[in-house]
Nucleic acid binder design. Structure first.
Lengths: 189, 189, 189, 189
DNA sequence: AATGAATGAGTATTCATTCAT
DNA sequence: CATGAATGAATACTCATTCAT
């Protein structure tokens, strides 16, 4: 288990500022935005940025992880809700709505599997939370029993890409979502 | 109406070689692959490439259009098949299978709406073919009647992204596809 | 003495068209205008252009020579005029007026000395015509006797560059010209 | 009012090195010399050059301004000299001598009028210094009173181009200069 | 530890010139 | 002979990363 060396207070603050700036900048201008712009947005010199994230890729990775962490947290939150049958769909809907505008979130989820070893922890968190949510809904009988987490993730990734593609119109998005949701429900009889 | 001046035989051949190379290279290394690499792969000088496609963007556009054209052709082909109820699903499955490995195809479909005026023709072709396929299936009663082409496209885009994300495993892909297909079928009362 | 091989009628016509186009294009867009543009303006393929002028530089050279030829012709014309004292100044004024807008003419005159051996003929023509004009004016007493053709050319080059720099205003140009003319006149006493 | 942020010592040094190299290279090989060559001559990477001057044009502009600044300084110096009648001609002669070999200087003077707003300051300096020099000489009676700064500049531009064209021979240059000088003097009587 | 200047490989695009049609 | 397609060296500019201050 890797020791996370305790950063000095200001160093931690800088790291956070950079991460936030990176999210903002990359979301706005795509991942090919110059690193220097991120630094500027963070109010830091490039040097500082590179001290915290030795590579642009590392920075992107960190942003991804951050997203995953939030995803996991949110999933856990919904997993604790009383009505598991609806919680599942509610979570999905909320997620898709959000991811539709910030494709970075979808990227993060999509990357959940493929990532480097260090990311394993977060991935497990995500998958775990999702599995809980799924299983409970299946137990409650609102979701067909032959769906696994893997397909679920693929479906979520796909659905949010589709939603993203649909752009602004919420009604259209809703209709697409209904189709997928119907597909997820147990077939009658 | 713009006259497409008939290119000299060798010129046409080169244009085609470049287009093919572009598809290969961009599929393999992403759209940010150096233009020069495309030229090399096509066995021509950069100059030639730029004579045919005055801009990298123009080249990408052309690749996209090419894909759309094939898509439309295929859709038309299936629209002519006897059993419209199944043709729809068969076409979808085939498309997703293909797009799962060449994300460029999904990109093309996703771009079908957003494109520049010159692309309008192809887009109409695509949408038209798709609409035919869809309407016939709805008439045949195998697809729920409240789906429009727009959502359908979004769904296709999403599903192939999801399939792409799933990677190699055909069984998983099949299961995801089943869910979407079920969602598309008319709900039994 | 080099034999100028007699060109076929259409070849000569093409050469002339290219030369004219080159003058137009280079005047309008500067000498760095693409050769292809000249060809297009001439209604000829690049290949043809390069057959007549093996190098862009050769083409520029030819344009220059053409200008010199016209210059010489004009000078000769004025040298034949009755009133040599005024002819000199009249010619100068006319030349500067013209050269002020087409700096290519100044370039040509400026190049009169520096050029390659083949240009020698034209240069001699130019210098000869100018010398005649000058000498007659000096004999007529309207121009100081200590001026030589060389300085005269330098002065003309300079004056037209100055005029060019002055841009549109003819009054200003006139005043500048007056100064130079006064300088050229014999000092009283 | 824009604050000129004080550059770090080494940055300032590099900026200066680049400017010097640019002057040298552009003077030697013309303004179309590759930017990279300037960088090499300055002993810095291209990146550094472009950090200081975001565009080749910006670099050229800076070189021009530098020249203008020197011109203005020199003019001011001569404007302070005791004998204004001769100072004017002395300055002119010196300037032409110098500009004859470095046409970049003439370019700078020629550009004094045409330049972008930011250059306005320097231009005013130049024109102001020149006007002082001119007016004093006119007051001293050594220069005709109907000459304005505008024509003067045009004349200087022209004369130095002429001198440049004359090339090496100082005697010829002197004779050309005499003619212009005589033209500038008040006509006797 | 933070800063931002320096670096230079990398990239799209142009254009003189050659050569197959 | 004319044509215009093919060529590829050349060039301005960008950006991840390093390093002196």
């Amino acid at each position: 288990m890797l020791e996370e060396k305790p950063l000095r207070a200001d160093a931690r603050r800088n790291r956070a500022k950079v991460l936030a700036a990176a999210e903002a900048v990359f979301t706005a201008k795509g991942m090919s935005a110059p690193t220097e712009e991120v630094a500027k947005a963070a109010g830091v010199g490039v040097g500082t940025l590179f001290r915290h994230f030795p590579t642009k890729e590392a920075l992107l990775e960190a942003v991804l992880q951050e997203h995953l962490r939030r995803f996991a947290a949110e999933a856990v939150r919904w997993a604790g809700v009383d009505d598991p049958g609806n919680a599942f769909f509610a979570f999905l809907k909320q997620w898709v709505e959000m991811a539709a505008t910030k494709n970075a979130y979808t990227d993060a989820l999509a990357a959940a599997g493929t990532r480097a070893p260090e990311a394993a922890g977060v991935r497990d968190e995500v998958v775990g939370a999702l599995r809980t949510l799924l299983t409970r809904a299946q137990d409650a009988g609102t979701v067909r029993s032959d769906v696994g987490v893997t397909e679920l993730i693929a479906l979520m990734v796909g659905t949010s890409r589709g939603a993203e593609h649909l752009g602004g119109d919420p009604a259209l998005r809703q209709r697409m979502l209904e189709i997928v949701f119907d597909g997820l429900r147990p077939s009658p009889r």
